[in-house]
C-alpha cells in the first residue's frame, strides 16, 4: 500500500494519534527574564527573545488504533516534549496534533496532589483534574483503593505517605478508566517490584483486552522492543528513523 495524503476524515477512522509536522521552540533567553526591569532593558537593547531552541523539529507520526508505539532517543532528544504535545499539555509552536479518543497520560502522575489533604480527598481532587466526574470516581473508588492497596491509610494526610505509596495511588487513579490512548513515560518504575509488576499487568490488560492505543517512552530499549510494534527514533529533536520497532531499536542500539 502506498501512502497517499489521506484527508482528515479518513485519517480519523484509522488513526488514534496524528502528529503532523510538529515543531516546538523554546526561548532560552526568556528563562531568566522575570522582572520588569530586565524586560525593558532587554527590550531597549533589542535582545529580547534572541536565542531559540528547537526541542522538537518537524516531527510527524501516525499511530494506528490499537497500535503500541515506542519512542526512543537519548536524554534531551525531545521525547518528553513530544509526549506532552500529544497529551495536550504543551501547545506546539508549529504543526498540529490530532487525537481521537480519551487520553490517560501517565507522564507525570499525581497532578494536583495536595500533601495536606487525605488520600481520600486527593483521589477525588486528582480524579476531577483528570476529567472524571464525581459519580465516576464514586463508583470506582473501591477499585482505586484496592489497586493501590491503601485501605488502612485512607484518611491520613498525604504528607505522611512514602513516595512509593503516593505513586501507587496516582497510578491507580490514572488507570481506572479504560482509555482509548495511553501515554506511558517511564512511570513503570514506581513502587516496589510487586507493584511494578502489577502496573505492567494492568497496561498489558489494556493493550490486549481493550485494544488501547499506547504511546510508550522508555530508556530501556529492550522494553520498547518487547512491547511495541512500531517505533520512532528521535535525535536532537529531529526524526532519525521510523517504522517497525525491531528495526528502529536495532538501528538505535548500533548507533551507540
Amino acid at each position: 500500500m502506498s501512502k497517499p495524503k489521506t484527508n482528515t476524515q479518513e485519517m480519523e477512522t484509522d488513526y488514534a494519534i496524528l502528529v503532523d509536522d510538529v515543531t516546538m521552540i523554546f526561548n532560552i533567553a526568556s528563562e531568566n527574564l522575570t522582572s520588569l526591569k530586565e524586560y525593558f532593558i532587554k527590550l531597549i537593547r533589542r535582545e529580547l527573545f534572541f536565542k531559540e531552541f528547537l526541542a522538537v523539529d518537524s516531527v510527524s507520526l501516525k499511530v494506528k488504533r490499537g497500535d503500541v508505539y515506542g519512542i526512543v532517543g537519548t536524554n534531551g532528544s525531545g521525547k518528553s516534549t513530544l509526549l506532552k504535545m500529544v497529551a495536550g499539555v504543551l501547545e506546539p509552536s508549529r504543526g498540529s496534533v490530532q487525537i481521537d479518543g480519551i487520553i490517560a497520560p501517565l507522564i507525570e502522575l499525581g497532578a494536583g496532589f495536595d500533601a495536606e489533604l487525605t488520600a481520600r480527598e486527593n483521589i477525588y481532587l486528582n480524579g476531577s483534574l483528570l476529567g472524571y466526574s464525581k459519580d465516576f470516581i464514586h463508583a470506582h473508588f473501591d477499585e482505586i483503593v484496592d489497586f493501590a492497596e491503601l485501605w488502612d491509610f485512607l484518611d491520613m494526610p498525604l504528607k505522611n505517605y512514602s513516595s512509593g505509596m503516593v505513586a501507587r495511588i496516582a497510578f491507580a487513579i490514572a488507570t481506572v478508566i479504560v482509555p482509548d490512548i495511553l501515554i506511558v513515560d517511564e512511570t513503570l518504575s514506581v513502587g516496589d517490584m510487586f507493584f511494578q509488576e502489577k502496573c505492567e499487568n494492568r497496561i498489558n490488560a489494556l493493550i490486549n483486552d481493550h485494544h488501547t492505543t499506547v504511546l510508550f517512552v522508555s530508556h530501556s530499549i529492550d522494553q520498547v522492543e518487547r512491547l511495541c510494534k512500531n517505533a520512532i527514533w528521535i535525535e536532537k529533536g529531529k526524526m532519525r528513523m521510523q517504522g517497525d520497532a525491531k528495526t528502529v531499536c536495532e538501528a538505535y542500539r548500533n548507533s551507540q
Binding site: 476531577s128 472524571y132 465516576f136 478508566i177 479504560v178 482509555p179
Partner: peptide
Amino acid sequence: PPAAPRYDTLASRFKKDWYI
C-alpha cells in the same frame, strides 16, 4: 470496564470544568 467519561458537548465540558 468502567465507562470512560466523554466530553463531546459543550454542556458536558462545562460540567467537567465546574467539577474541577
